[in-house]
């Protein structure tokens, strides 16, 4: 069964370490230890302004995580529906899902965020962070949809036939047979998308959502410590994404148990 496994490459995520990249001299370890060492030495040897900057950021980091986790949750759900819709034989469902993907993929994320945020403002009142989550989920739902579609399509048609011939309905077939297998193919690109999404949440700072980036900019604009502030912001983002990419690769190893 190993031979027909399909890997899906999605750009823009952080590089997820593979098994062969283990060891202390892998790119991951160099980057991680380097970032950590730089951060710590800045904090220790130049607490003013670096420690002050870092102390200003925690609630922004919390917001970044909130937006990331809420968005990835909704995006996964939307992506699953979209992915299934894209391979549905029902023409209307298929057309809706495909149109959604086409529209979202054709518009830059930044523009969509602006549009959804301000367009929504005209009709419904939702807090800015909710608007940001809706906008991010809407965009990433389409990307996830393509990941799910590819993942589901990577499962041999015989699996569906076997399940259906036993009496499973399409929904049960998806839940018990297809998705548990597709997950292996889907997880790496989903992990990538997850990390890409975390980085893209920095865009919500233009919506005046007080995330990590915006907190940093607020600090910098008041103290004129642009270089120092962006150094810290970059290091914080880097450390977070490196940890997440390690977690994703650990999960990948786990999920390969039955191969």
């Amino acid at each position: 069964m190993d031979d027909d496994r399909i890997t899906i490459d999605v750009t823009d995520g952080a590089a997820i370490p593979r098994r062969k990249d283990a060891g202390l001299f892998s790119a991951w370890w160099i980057a991680f230890l380097g970032a950590l060492l730089t951060l710590v030495s800045l904090l220790v040897f130049e607490p003013d302004p670096y420690l002050k900057i870092l102390k200003f950021l925690p609630d922004g980091i919390v917001v970044t995580f909130q937006v990331t986790f809420a968005s990835i949750g909704f995006a996964l759900l939307l992506g699953l529906l979209t992915g299934i819709g894209r391979i549905s034989k029902n023409r209307i469902v298929n057309a809706v899902a495909s149109t959604y993907v086409e529209v979202v993929r054709g518009i830059p994320l930044l523009v969509q965020l602006f549009y959804i945020y301000y367009a929504m403002g005209r009709f419904v009142k939702v807090p800015d962070i909710v608007a940001a989550v809706i906008a991010m989920s809407f965009c990433y739902g389409a990307y996830m949809g393509e990941v799910f579609r590819a993942g589901i399509e990577s499962i041999h048609k015989g699996q569906t036939e076997a399940a259906r011939s036993l009496g499973f309905n399409p929904f049960q077939t998806m839940v018990h047979v297809i998705l548990p297998q597709a997950w292996r193919t889907i997880l790496p690109p989903v992990g990538n998308e997850f990390i890409a999404l975390l980085k893209d949440t920095s865009l919500v700072s233009i919506l005046a959502v007080a995330d990590l980036l915006r907190r940093g900019r607020e600090f910098a604009s008041e103290t004129f410590t642009y270089f120092e502030t962006y150094t810290i912001i970059a290091l914080v983002y880097l450390i977070i994404t490196l940890i997440l990419s390690k977690l994703v690769s650990k999960m990948e190893e786990k999920i390969n148990y039955y191969a």
């Binding site: 069964m1 041999h156 015989g158 699996q159 036939e161 076997a162 399940a163 259906r164 011939s165 036993l166 009496g167 499973f168 309905n169 047979v177 548990p180 297998q181 039955y258």
Partner: peptide
Amino acid sequence: INKIRMEVGMVFQSFNLFPH
């Protein structure tokens, strides 16, 4: 059809066991 299929077992050329 799902009820009817429960009464009709099927064996395929390519086995189609659930690998997971």
